[in-house]
Design a protein around this nucleic acid. Structure first.
Lengths: 204, 204
DNA sequence: TTCCAAAATTGAGTCAATTCGTCATTCGTG
DNA sequence: CACGAATGACGAATTGACTCAATTTTGGAA
Protein backbone atom coordinates (compact mmCIF):
# COMPACT_ATOMS: atom_id res chain seq x y z
CA UNK A 1 0.00 0.00 0.00
CA UNK A 2 1.87 3.05 -1.22
CA UNK A 3 1.47 6.80 -1.19
CA UNK A 4 -0.34 7.59 -4.39
CA UNK A 5 -3.33 5.39 -3.76
CA UNK A 6 -3.56 6.54 -0.14
CA UNK A 7 -3.20 10.16 -1.18
CA UNK A 8 -5.98 9.92 -3.74
CA UNK A 9 -8.17 8.27 -1.15
CA UNK A 10 -7.53 10.99 1.40
CA UNK A 11 -8.11 13.69 -1.23
CA UNK A 12 -11.40 12.22 -2.35
CA UNK A 13 -12.53 11.60 1.20
CA UNK A 14 -11.92 15.16 2.25
CA UNK A 15 -13.57 16.51 -0.90
CA UNK A 16 -16.64 14.39 -0.13
CA UNK A 17 -16.76 15.55 3.48
CA UNK A 18 -16.30 19.21 2.54
CA UNK A 19 -18.97 19.07 -0.13
CA UNK A 20 -21.37 17.23 2.16
CA UNK A 21 -20.80 19.56 5.11
CA UNK A 22 -21.44 22.59 2.96
CA UNK A 23 -24.54 21.17 1.28
CA UNK A 24 -26.00 19.79 4.51
CA UNK A 25 -25.72 23.24 6.02
CA UNK A 26 -27.08 25.06 2.95
CA UNK A 27 -29.80 22.71 1.81
CA UNK A 28 -30.41 20.59 4.89
CA UNK A 29 -29.84 16.87 5.13
CA UNK A 30 -32.75 15.80 2.94
CA UNK A 31 -32.17 18.63 0.53
CA UNK A 32 -28.57 17.62 -0.11
CA UNK A 33 -28.80 15.05 -2.90
CA UNK A 34 -26.07 12.44 -3.20
CA UNK A 35 -25.75 13.31 -6.86
CA UNK A 36 -25.09 16.96 -5.94
CA UNK A 37 -22.55 16.04 -3.30
CA UNK A 38 -20.82 13.79 -5.84
CA UNK A 39 -20.76 16.53 -8.47
CA UNK A 40 -19.38 19.10 -6.05
CA UNK A 41 -16.76 16.69 -4.74
CA UNK A 42 -15.88 15.74 -8.34
CA UNK A 43 -16.39 12.04 -7.78
CA UNK A 44 -19.08 9.67 -8.95
CA UNK A 45 -22.07 8.57 -6.93
CA UNK A 46 -20.67 5.07 -6.72
CA UNK A 47 -17.44 6.35 -5.22
CA UNK A 48 -19.27 8.00 -2.38
CA UNK A 49 -20.81 4.65 -1.55
CA UNK A 50 -17.35 3.17 -1.66
CA UNK A 51 -16.31 5.54 1.12
CA UNK A 52 -19.52 5.64 3.14
CA UNK A 53 -22.07 2.94 3.61
CA UNK A 54 -24.94 5.39 3.18
CA UNK A 55 -25.87 9.03 3.32
CA UNK A 56 -26.22 9.01 7.07
CA UNK A 57 -22.69 7.76 7.56
CA UNK A 58 -21.37 10.88 5.87
CA UNK A 59 -23.24 13.00 8.38
CA UNK A 60 -22.04 11.03 11.36
CA UNK A 61 -18.44 11.47 10.18
CA UNK A 62 -19.00 15.23 10.30
CA UNK A 63 -20.64 15.03 13.71
CA UNK A 64 -17.72 13.01 15.06
CA UNK A 65 -15.30 15.78 14.22
CA UNK A 66 -17.43 18.27 16.16
CA UNK A 67 -17.82 16.04 19.21
CA UNK A 68 -14.10 15.40 19.32
CA UNK A 69 -13.51 19.12 19.50
CA UNK A 70 -15.98 19.31 22.36
CA UNK A 71 -14.17 16.52 24.18
CA UNK A 72 -10.90 18.39 23.86
CA UNK A 73 -12.40 21.56 25.24
CA UNK A 74 -13.93 19.55 28.08
CA UNK A 75 -10.57 18.07 28.99
CA UNK A 76 -9.30 21.52 29.87
CA UNK A 77 -12.21 22.09 32.27
CA UNK A 78 -11.69 18.75 33.99
CA UNK A 79 -8.00 19.51 34.41
CA UNK A 80 -8.70 22.77 36.15
CA UNK A 81 -12.33 22.96 37.33
CA UNK A 82 -14.02 25.78 39.28
CA UNK A 83 -13.60 24.95 42.98
CA UNK A 84 -17.30 24.50 43.61
CA UNK A 85 -19.42 21.50 42.68
CA UNK A 86 -22.28 23.37 41.11
CA UNK A 87 -20.05 25.64 39.04
CA UNK A 88 -17.72 22.87 37.98
CA UNK A 89 -20.56 20.76 36.58
CA UNK A 90 -22.14 23.82 35.02
CA UNK A 91 -18.85 24.77 33.37
CA UNK A 92 -18.32 21.37 31.76
CA UNK A 93 -21.89 21.03 30.59
CA UNK A 94 -21.73 24.61 29.37
CA UNK A 95 -18.79 23.67 27.14
CA UNK A 96 -20.75 20.80 25.64
CA UNK A 97 -23.87 22.81 24.99
CA UNK A 98 -22.26 26.00 23.74
CA UNK A 99 -19.94 24.22 21.29
CA UNK A 100 -22.65 22.00 19.94
CA UNK A 101 -24.03 24.31 17.29
CA UNK A 102 -20.70 25.64 16.09
CA UNK A 103 -20.57 23.68 12.86
CA UNK A 104 -23.76 21.69 13.05
CA UNK A 105 -27.31 22.93 12.62
CA UNK A 106 -30.12 21.56 14.77
CA UNK A 107 -31.39 19.71 11.75
CA UNK A 108 -28.04 18.00 11.29
CA UNK A 109 -28.06 16.95 14.95
CA UNK A 110 -31.55 15.55 14.62
CA UNK A 111 -30.57 13.49 11.64
CA UNK A 112 -27.35 12.27 13.22
CA UNK A 113 -29.10 11.22 16.42
CA UNK A 114 -31.82 9.48 14.48
CA UNK A 115 -29.32 7.56 12.39
CA UNK A 116 -27.29 6.47 15.38
CA UNK A 117 -30.45 5.03 16.90
CA UNK A 118 -31.61 3.48 13.66
CA UNK A 119 -28.33 1.78 12.80
CA UNK A 120 -26.51 1.18 16.08
CA UNK A 121 -24.33 -1.53 14.57
CA UNK A 122 -23.04 0.38 11.57
CA UNK A 123 -19.47 1.64 11.92
CA UNK A 124 -20.72 5.15 12.53
CA UNK A 125 -23.46 4.08 14.88
CA UNK A 126 -20.69 2.58 16.95
CA UNK A 127 -18.63 5.74 16.62
CA UNK A 128 -21.54 7.76 17.88
CA UNK A 129 -22.03 5.46 20.87
CA UNK A 130 -18.33 5.70 21.63
CA UNK A 131 -18.60 9.48 21.68
CA UNK A 132 -21.49 9.29 24.14
CA UNK A 133 -19.40 7.03 26.33
CA UNK A 134 -16.48 9.42 26.14
CA UNK A 135 -18.68 12.29 27.31
CA UNK A 136 -20.11 10.21 30.16
CA UNK A 137 -16.60 9.25 31.11
CA UNK A 138 -15.47 12.85 31.10
CA UNK A 139 -18.27 13.72 33.51
CA UNK A 140 -17.19 10.81 35.70
CA UNK A 141 -13.62 12.20 35.61
CA UNK A 142 -14.87 15.56 36.75
CA UNK A 143 -16.62 13.99 39.73
CA UNK A 144 -13.41 12.12 40.53
CA UNK A 145 -11.47 15.36 40.34
CA UNK A 146 -13.96 17.05 42.67
CA UNK A 147 -13.53 14.17 45.10
CA UNK A 148 -9.74 14.74 45.04
CA UNK A 149 -10.43 18.37 45.83
CA UNK A 150 -12.65 17.16 48.71
CA UNK A 151 -15.69 18.94 47.31
CA UNK A 152 -17.66 15.74 46.71
CA UNK A 153 -18.20 13.07 49.32
CA UNK A 154 -15.73 10.21 48.82
CA UNK A 155 -18.27 7.36 49.05
CA UNK A 156 -20.17 8.69 46.02
CA UNK A 157 -19.88 6.47 42.93
CA UNK A 158 -18.52 8.76 40.24
CA UNK A 159 -19.57 6.50 37.40
CA UNK A 160 -23.20 6.49 38.47
CA UNK A 161 -23.29 10.25 38.88
CA UNK A 162 -21.57 10.69 35.50
CA UNK A 163 -24.26 8.54 33.90
CA UNK A 164 -27.06 10.50 35.52
CA UNK A 165 -25.56 13.81 34.45
CA UNK A 166 -24.93 12.67 30.90
CA UNK A 167 -28.24 10.91 30.39
CA UNK A 168 -30.22 13.85 31.65
CA UNK A 169 -28.17 16.35 29.65
CA UNK A 170 -28.40 14.28 26.49
CA UNK A 171 -32.18 13.89 26.68
CA UNK A 172 -32.54 17.61 27.30
CA UNK A 173 -30.26 18.30 24.36
CA UNK A 174 -32.34 15.99 22.17
CA UNK A 175 -35.47 17.92 23.13
CA UNK A 176 -33.57 21.15 22.46
CA UNK A 177 -32.61 20.21 18.91
CA UNK A 178 -36.09 18.87 18.24
CA UNK A 179 -37.63 22.32 18.75
CA UNK A 180 -36.16 24.91 16.42
CA UNK A 181 -37.49 27.68 18.63
CA UNK A 182 -35.82 26.35 21.79
CA UNK A 183 -33.25 28.73 23.22
CA UNK A 184 -29.89 27.70 24.52
CA UNK A 185 -30.20 29.91 27.61
CA UNK A 186 -33.38 28.09 28.63
CA UNK A 187 -31.73 24.74 28.14
CA UNK A 188 -28.85 25.73 30.38
CA UNK A 189 -31.19 27.10 33.04
CA UNK A 190 -33.21 23.88 33.05
CA UNK A 191 -30.04 21.82 33.34
CA UNK A 192 -28.88 23.93 36.29
CA UNK A 193 -32.24 23.42 37.98
CA UNK A 194 -32.06 19.66 37.44
CA UNK A 195 -28.42 19.28 38.38
CA UNK A 196 -28.93 21.16 41.63
CA UNK A 197 -30.80 18.11 42.94
CA UNK A 198 -27.79 15.96 42.16
CA UNK A 199 -25.37 18.51 43.56
CA UNK A 200 -27.28 18.45 46.83
CA UNK A 201 -26.93 14.68 46.94
CA UNK A 202 -23.18 14.52 46.35
CA UNK A 203 -21.60 17.74 47.65
CA UNK A 204 -19.69 17.63 50.89
CA UNK B 1 -71.68 10.78 7.75
CA UNK B 2 -73.33 7.40 8.07
CA UNK B 3 -72.49 4.02 9.49
CA UNK B 4 -71.36 2.30 6.36
CA UNK B 5 -68.65 4.77 5.48
CA UNK B 6 -67.35 4.82 9.06
CA UNK B 7 -67.46 1.06 9.26
CA UNK B 8 -65.47 0.63 6.07
CA UNK B 9 -62.95 3.14 7.28
CA UNK B 10 -62.53 1.37 10.62
CA UNK B 11 -62.25 -1.99 8.88
CA UNK B 12 -59.59 -0.86 6.49
CA UNK B 13 -57.71 1.00 9.19
CA UNK B 14 -57.55 -2.03 11.41
CA UNK B 15 -56.55 -4.27 8.50
CA UNK B 16 -53.72 -1.87 7.69
CA UNK B 17 -52.54 -1.76 11.30
CA UNK B 18 -52.74 -5.53 11.71
CA UNK B 19 -50.86 -6.17 8.50
CA UNK B 20 -48.21 -3.57 9.35
CA UNK B 21 -47.73 -4.81 12.91
CA UNK B 22 -47.28 -8.35 11.70
CA UNK B 23 -44.90 -7.44 8.89
CA UNK B 24 -42.86 -5.03 11.04
CA UNK B 25 -42.31 -7.85 13.51
CA UNK B 26 -41.56 -10.51 10.91
CA UNK B 27 -39.51 -8.56 8.41
CA UNK B 28 -38.44 -5.52 10.40
CA UNK B 29 -39.44 -1.95 9.65
CA UNK B 30 -37.31 -1.53 6.52
CA UNK B 31 -38.09 -5.03 5.35
CA UNK B 32 -41.83 -4.41 5.45
CA UNK B 33 -42.62 -2.86 2.06
CA UNK B 34 -45.65 -0.61 1.74
CA UNK B 35 -46.73 -2.66 -1.25
CA UNK B 36 -46.65 -5.81 0.88
CA UNK B 37 -48.58 -4.19 3.70
CA UNK B 38 -51.14 -2.99 1.17
CA UNK B 39 -51.47 -6.45 -0.38
CA UNK B 40 -51.87 -8.14 3.00
CA UNK B 41 -54.42 -5.54 4.15
CA UNK B 42 -56.25 -5.90 0.82
CA UNK B 43 -56.11 -2.21 0.03
CA UNK B 44 -54.10 -0.26 -2.49
CA UNK B 45 -50.91 1.62 -1.77
CA UNK B 46 -52.71 4.92 -2.23
CA UNK B 47 -55.26 4.05 0.42
CA UNK B 48 -52.57 3.53 3.01
CA UNK B 49 -51.38 7.06 2.31
CA UNK B 50 -54.93 8.23 2.72
CA UNK B 51 -54.90 6.88 6.28
CA UNK B 52 -51.30 7.61 7.24
CA UNK B 53 -49.08 10.42 6.08
CA UNK B 54 -46.07 8.14 5.71
CA UNK B 55 -44.65 4.79 6.71
CA UNK B 56 -43.46 6.13 10.05
CA UNK B 57 -46.96 7.24 10.99
CA UNK B 58 -48.11 3.65 10.80
CA UNK B 59 -45.42 2.69 13.25
CA UNK B 60 -46.26 5.45 15.70
CA UNK B 61 -49.89 4.39 15.72
CA UNK B 62 -48.71 0.99 16.92
CA UNK B 63 -46.27 2.48 19.42
CA UNK B 64 -48.99 4.74 20.81
CA UNK B 65 -51.20 1.79 21.62
CA UNK B 66 -48.37 0.16 23.55
CA UNK B 67 -47.40 3.31 25.47
CA UNK B 68 -51.01 4.02 26.37
CA UNK B 69 -51.27 0.57 27.91
CA UNK B 70 -48.12 1.32 29.87
CA UNK B 71 -49.58 4.61 31.09
CA UNK B 72 -52.72 2.84 32.29
CA UNK B 73 -50.71 0.25 34.17
CA UNK B 74 -48.60 3.04 35.66
CA UNK B 75 -51.69 4.86 36.89
CA UNK B 76 -52.51 1.93 39.15
CA UNK B 77 -49.04 2.09 40.73
CA UNK B 78 -49.28 5.83 41.33
CA UNK B 79 -52.69 5.38 42.93
CA UNK B 80 -51.37 2.83 45.41
CA UNK B 81 -47.58 2.91 45.56
CA UNK B 82 -45.28 0.82 47.79
CA UNK B 83 -44.76 2.80 50.99
CA UNK B 84 -41.05 3.28 50.45
CA UNK B 85 -39.42 5.74 48.07
CA UNK B 86 -36.96 3.35 46.47
CA UNK B 87 -39.55 0.61 45.93
CA UNK B 88 -42.20 2.99 44.67
CA UNK B 89 -39.93 4.42 41.98
CA UNK B 90 -38.67 0.97 41.12
CA UNK B 91 -42.22 -0.34 40.80
CA UNK B 92 -43.32 2.38 38.38
CA UNK B 93 -40.20 2.19 36.26
CA UNK B 94 -40.47 -1.58 36.34
CA UNK B 95 -43.93 -1.33 34.80
CA UNK B 96 -42.60 0.85 32.00
CA UNK B 97 -39.65 -1.38 31.21
CA UNK B 98 -41.35 -4.72 31.50
CA UNK B 99 -44.32 -3.76 29.34
CA UNK B 100 -42.20 -2.16 26.67
CA UNK B 101 -41.47 -5.21 24.55
CA UNK B 102 -44.94 -6.72 24.76
CA UNK B 103 -45.99 -5.87 21.22
CA UNK B 104 -42.93 -4.03 19.94
CA UNK B 105 -39.57 -5.49 19.01
CA UNK B 106 -36.37 -3.62 19.82
CA UNK B 107 -36.03 -2.83 16.14
CA UNK B 108 -39.46 -1.25 16.07
CA UNK B 109 -38.55 0.89 19.07
CA UNK B 110 -35.34 1.99 17.39
CA UNK B 111 -37.20 3.06 14.29
CA UNK B 112 -39.91 4.81 16.25
CA UNK B 113 -37.39 6.75 18.30
CA UNK B 114 -35.37 7.64 15.24
CA UNK B 115 -38.39 8.92 13.35
CA UNK B 116 -39.60 10.97 16.29
CA UNK B 117 -36.22 12.69 16.40
CA UNK B 118 -36.01 13.12 12.65
CA UNK B 119 -39.48 14.59 12.20
CA UNK B 120 -40.39 16.24 15.49
CA UNK B 121 -43.08 18.37 13.87
CA UNK B 122 -44.93 15.63 12.05
CA UNK B 123 -48.04 14.22 13.72
CA UNK B 124 -45.88 11.21 14.61
CA UNK B 125 -43.24 13.30 16.30
CA UNK B 126 -45.80 15.27 18.24
CA UNK B 127 -47.63 12.17 19.38
CA UNK B 128 -44.38 10.63 20.50
CA UNK B 129 -43.37 13.76 22.41
CA UNK B 130 -46.76 13.85 24.08
CA UNK B 131 -46.26 10.28 25.26
CA UNK B 132 -42.86 11.18 26.70
CA UNK B 133 -44.44 14.11 28.52
CA UNK B 134 -47.17 11.87 29.87
CA UNK B 135 -44.59 9.49 31.30
CA UNK B 136 -42.58 12.33 32.84
CA UNK B 137 -45.77 13.66 34.31
CA UNK B 138 -46.68 10.32 35.78
CA UNK B 139 -43.30 10.17 37.52
CA UNK B 140 -43.92 13.68 38.84
CA UNK B 141 -47.29 12.48 40.16
CA UNK B 142 -45.63 9.63 41.95
CA UNK B 143 -43.25 12.01 43.70
CA UNK B 144 -46.23 14.16 44.67
CA UNK B 145 -48.00 11.11 46.04
CA UNK B 146 -44.91 10.17 48.06
CA UNK B 147 -44.83 13.70 49.46
CA UNK B 148 -48.46 13.30 50.57
CA UNK B 149 -47.41 10.08 52.29
CA UNK B 150 -44.58 12.06 53.92
CA UNK B 151 -41.92 9.82 52.43
CA UNK B 152 -40.35 12.57 50.34
CA UNK B 153 -39.26 15.91 51.73
CA UNK B 154 -41.91 18.57 51.01
CA UNK B 155 -39.54 21.22 49.61
CA UNK B 156 -38.41 18.91 46.80
CA UNK B 157 -39.60 20.02 43.34
CA UNK B 158 -41.50 17.05 41.98
CA UNK B 159 -41.33 18.24 38.40
CA UNK B 160 -37.56 18.42 38.41
CA UNK B 161 -37.20 14.99 39.97
CA UNK B 162 -39.69 13.57 37.49
CA UNK B 163 -37.63 14.98 34.64
CA UNK B 164 -34.42 13.54 36.01
CA UNK B 165 -35.99 10.12 36.49
CA UNK B 166 -37.58 10.09 33.07
CA UNK B 167 -34.59 11.46 31.17
CA UNK B 168 -32.23 8.98 32.74
CA UNK B 169 -34.62 6.08 32.25
CA UNK B 170 -35.30 7.02 28.66
CA UNK B 171 -31.63 7.29 27.72
CA UNK B 172 -30.95 3.96 29.38
CA UNK B 173 -33.89 2.48 27.50
CA UNK B 174 -32.55 3.88 24.24
CA UNK B 175 -29.19 2.21 24.90
CA UNK B 176 -31.06 -0.96 25.79
CA UNK B 177 -32.95 -1.16 22.51
CA UNK B 178 -29.82 -0.25 20.57
CA UNK B 179 -28.04 -3.42 21.72
CA UNK B 180 -29.97 -6.53 20.79
CA UNK B 181 -28.00 -8.52 23.35
CA UNK B 182 -28.82 -6.18 26.23
CA UNK B 183 -30.81 -7.88 28.98
CA UNK B 184 -33.76 -6.36 30.73
CA UNK B 185 -32.55 -7.49 34.15
CA UNK B 186 -29.30 -5.57 33.68
CA UNK B 187 -31.18 -2.47 32.60
CA UNK B 188 -33.33 -2.60 35.72
CA UNK B 189 -30.34 -3.15 37.97
CA UNK B 190 -28.52 -0.18 36.43
CA UNK B 191 -31.59 2.00 36.87
CA UNK B 192 -31.87 0.99 40.52
CA UNK B 193 -28.20 1.87 41.04
CA UNK B 194 -28.69 5.27 39.39
CA UNK B 195 -31.98 6.08 41.07
CA UNK B 196 -30.55 5.31 44.50
CA UNK B 197 -28.55 8.55 44.22
CA UNK B 198 -31.74 10.46 43.62
CA UNK B 199 -33.60 8.60 46.33
CA UNK B 200 -30.91 9.63 48.81
CA UNK B 201 -31.39 13.24 47.76
CA UNK B 202 -35.16 13.37 48.16
CA UNK B 203 -36.21 10.81 50.81
CA UNK B 204 -37.17 12.06 54.22
C1' DT C 1 -85.84 4.64 -7.41
C1' DT C 2 -82.72 7.93 -9.69
C1' DC C 3 -79.14 10.95 -9.79
C1' DC C 4 -75.45 14.19 -8.27
C1' DA C 5 -71.78 15.84 -5.34
C1' DA C 6 -68.58 14.52 -2.02
C1' DA C 7 -65.55 11.19 -0.28
C1' DA C 8 -62.57 7.56 -0.92
C1' DT C 9 -59.89 4.13 -3.59
C1' DT C 10 -56.75 2.99 -7.09
C1' DG C 11 -52.14 2.00 -9.27
C1' DA C 12 -49.06 3.75 -12.67
C1' DG C 13 -45.67 7.32 -12.42
C1' DT C 14 -41.91 10.17 -10.04
C1' DC C 15 -37.93 10.83 -7.44
C1' DA C 16 -33.80 9.90 -4.93
C1' DA C 17 -30.98 6.45 -2.37
C1' DT C 18 -28.48 2.47 -3.07
C1' DT C 19 -26.47 -1.56 -5.79
C1' DC C 20 -23.59 -3.89 -8.97
C1' DG C 21 -21.24 -5.31 -13.16
C1' DT C 22 -17.74 -3.10 -16.04
C1' DC C 23 -13.68 -0.75 -16.69
C1' DA C 24 -9.48 2.19 -15.36
C1' DT C 25 -5.71 2.95 -12.22
C1' DT C 26 -2.14 1.55 -9.14
C1' DC C 27 0.86 -1.92 -7.14
C1' DG C 28 4.44 -5.33 -6.70
C1' DT C 29 7.40 -8.40 -9.24
C1' DG C 30 10.70 -10.19 -12.66
C1' DC D 1 9.90 -1.37 -18.37
C1' DA D 2 6.23 -4.82 -18.90
C1' DC D 3 2.81 -7.57 -16.98
C1' DG D 4 -1.00 -9.62 -14.17
C1' DA D 5 -3.44 -8.95 -10.03
C1' DA D 6 -5.74 -6.15 -6.90
C1' DT D 7 -7.95 -2.13 -5.80
C1' DG D 8 -11.20 1.08 -6.52
C1' DA D 9 -14.01 4.52 -9.69
C1' DC D 10 -17.84 4.73 -12.46
C1' DG D 11 -22.83 5.42 -13.65
C1' DA D 12 -26.78 2.90 -15.51
C1' DA D 13 -30.11 0.02 -13.49
C1' DT D 14 -32.81 -1.20 -9.50
C1' DT D 15 -35.62 -0.41 -5.62
C1' DG D 16 -39.08 1.34 -2.76
C1' DA D 17 -41.48 5.38 -0.60
C1' DC D 18 -44.65 8.55 -1.89
C1' DT D 19 -47.96 11.39 -5.35
C1' DC D 20 -51.86 12.43 -8.14
C1' DA D 21 -55.27 12.33 -11.87
C1' DA D 22 -58.74 9.13 -12.99
C1' DT D 23 -62.27 6.18 -11.34
C1' DT D 24 -65.46 4.06 -8.07
C1' DT D 25 -68.36 4.16 -4.04
C1' DT D 26 -71.38 6.35 -0.77
C1' DG D 27 -75.02 9.47 1.25
C1' DG D 28 -79.05 11.66 0.73
C1' DA D 29 -82.21 14.92 -1.92
C1' DA D 30 -85.88 15.00 -5.13
Amino acid sequence: MSGLRAKHRADRDSRILDAAAQLFREAGYEGAKIETIAAQAEVSVGTIYNYYRNKGDILVAIVSMEVNEVLNAGRRVVGNPPVNVRDAIDALIGIYIEHSLHYLSKEMWRQAMAISTQQPDSPFGQTYSALDSALTDQLRSLIGRLQQLELVRPEIDGRTVGELLFNNMNMMFIEFVKRDAAQMAELRAALRRQNSILVAAIAK
